[in-house]
């Protein structure tokens, strides 16, 4: 049994699906599992130390968001009984329960998706999309977009500095800043659009096409594992729903 991109995708998909049905206690208990998988299981290992840091940061952000959601709903959703009195505010247990449900679902959903992406390089993602039958053009677009994404931020910084040096009001009032926005965006978009389209043609003239750049052949073992994962999680979900 092999655990490749397809298996990873179906695992994340199954987790994301379960997030809609499981009670918050179960959803939340999946969270440490996801973090442990990311750290210890090789197919889910992040691409780089930077990616790992970003992963943990995002989990932290989500947790903070979750606490905010629970707190806000406890405060604003006036249902059930008052469980806590903070200065002038009342916290209601109905609101907390609702908040916990939303927050746990969001946490599980987002981290399941992130678990897949943190360990899958864009090139492998393009491979995978090609293997599951997505058009060659889509794969080309994704690879080209990552290429442009590498360069656009640098360019934005350059144009930004150039405009600032020319005395554009980049730190003035909102209307002035909006004007600066146009003066930055117009030259930036025009020049990068022209270059991007020409470069796209030039890359195609060098034989750059999604599929030709695919490195891995379709992995049947991996697809088998993927199918097993989806099948068993659907089965588990169904039995849980019947039991409930």
């Amino acid at each position: 049994m092999r655990f490749g991109t397809a298996s990873k995708f179906s695992f994340s998909f199954a987790l994301a699906l379960l997030a809609f049905f499981l009670p918050w206690q179960v959803s939340l208990s999946f969270m440490p599992v996801i973090v442990l998988l990311e750290i210890f299981l090789s197919p889910f290992r992040p691409l780089s130390a930077g990616a790992h840091k970003k992963f943990l940061q995002f989990i932290g952000y989500l947790t903070f968001l979750g606490v905010l959601i629970v707190g806000m709903n406890g405060l604003l959703l006036k249902s059930g009984e008052v469980v806590l009195r903070l200065l002038w505010f009342n916290i209601y247990d109905g609101g907390i329960e609702f908040g916990l449900n939303v927050a746990s679902r969001l946490l599980l959903l987002s981290s399941a998706i992130l678990l897949f992406f943190v360990s899958t390089p864009i090139k492998m993602l393009a491979d995978f999309l090609g293997h599951i039958g997505l058009s060659k053009k889509i794969v080309t677009i994704i690879l080209l977009a990552t290429f442009y994404l590498d360069q656009l931020p640098q360019r934005i910084t350059q144009v930004f500095w150039a405009q600032e040096a020319r005395g554009a009001p980049v730190r003035s009032n909102i209307l002035q800043r909006l004007k600066s926005f146009f003066s930055i965006l117009a030259p930036l978009t025009l020049s990068s659009l022209v270059e991007s389209v020409d470069r796209g043609m030039a890359l195609q003239l060098r034989g750059f096409q999604g599929y030709a750049s695919l490195s891995q052949p379709r992995d049947l073992q991996d697809l088998k594992t993927a199918f097993l994962i989806v099948f068993s999680s659907l089965l588990a979900l169904l039995s849980y729903l019947i039991w409930k």
Binding site: F147, D150, Q151, E195, D198, R199, M201, A202, L203, L205, R206, G207, F208, Q209, A212, S213
Partner: peptide, 29 residues
């Protein structure tokens, strides 16, 4: 095979060395 007049456009930027860049077209086929 066509080489455009603007050579810098033909450089894929996906490789950090000239060797890699020359191999890019071969990779693609």
């Amino acid at each position: 095979g066509l080489a455009l007049q603007e050579s810098h456009l033909m450089i894929s930027g996906l490789h950090e060395t000239v060797r890699g860049e020359v191999g890019f077209s071969l990779e693609n086929i």
